[in-house]
């Protein structure tokens, strides 16, 4: 029987597969005992993609009880074959970082501090600011009398951190508002 590294890990990971030891042809008792103690034992594997450069290495996230317990390179993905660089290897600490922003924050004009707000409040407030700026500044025609429907006073920057699906929505929304100052990482 032929096993690649990944099949081997699946077989030996407790709780995933129960093959008889004879099928593998050697004694796995000590290894199984060790595997049972691993933090990924019994964890669900989820395939993701490293969020840094566009090599787009694949990462396996191990999730247990809804918590991220480990990340590692995906050995099946033909490009990175399990390897990751320093940043990709830091995926676990990045995701679980205590420095993450976890609540919508608001800084009032001339204030010296952030305040926590709820989502309903910030979305309503931002929508009103967008509408005010648009209603005041939308340019319907240019000096030649041509229709231009553009909003030069509001801009959108970013981002290549968005998924394709989010990029498509951003473009659609911004052009509907009339935004023309639109740019992102591709130009720097």
């Amino acid at each position: 029987m032929q096993l690649n590294r990944r099949d081997f890990m699946k077989v030996t990971g407790a709780g995933i597969a129960c093959l008889s030891l004879s099928q593998l042809g050697f004694d796995l008792k000590p290894l199984k005992a060790y595997a049972a103690e691993l933090k990924i034992a019994g964890a669900k594997e989820v395939i993701s993609v490293c969020p840094f450069c566009s090599v787009s290495c694949h990462i396996i996230a191990h999730v247990k009880d809804g918590q991220l317990v480990s990340t590692e390179g995906d050995p099946d993905y033909p490009i990175n074959q399990g390897a990751l660089c320093a940043k990709g290897a830091a995926m676990l600490s990045l995701t679980r970082s205590s420095h993450r922003v976890t609540k919508p924050l608001y800084r009032a004009p001339n204030s010296d501090k952030w305040e926590e707000k709820d989502w309903g409040w910030v979305i309503d407030r931002i929508a009103r600011r967008v509408k005010e700026s648009r209603d005041k500044n939308l340019q319907l025609t240019n000096t030649k009398g041509q229709t231009v429907n553009r909003l030069e006073h509001v801009f959108a920057l970013g981002t290549s951190h968005m998924d394709n699906e989010e990029c498509a929505l951003t473009h659609q929304a911004m052009r509907a508002l009339g935004v023309v100052h639109m740019d992102h990482q591709a130009r720097i």
Partner: peptide
């Protein structure tokens, strides 16, 4: 082009550019 950024190829294809 060894493109940087996590999805800069996709964000360019969807052209978040003026």
């Amino acid at each position: 082009a060894l493109r940087g950024e996590p999805n800069v190829q996709g964000s360019t294809d969807h052209t978040l550019l003026y």
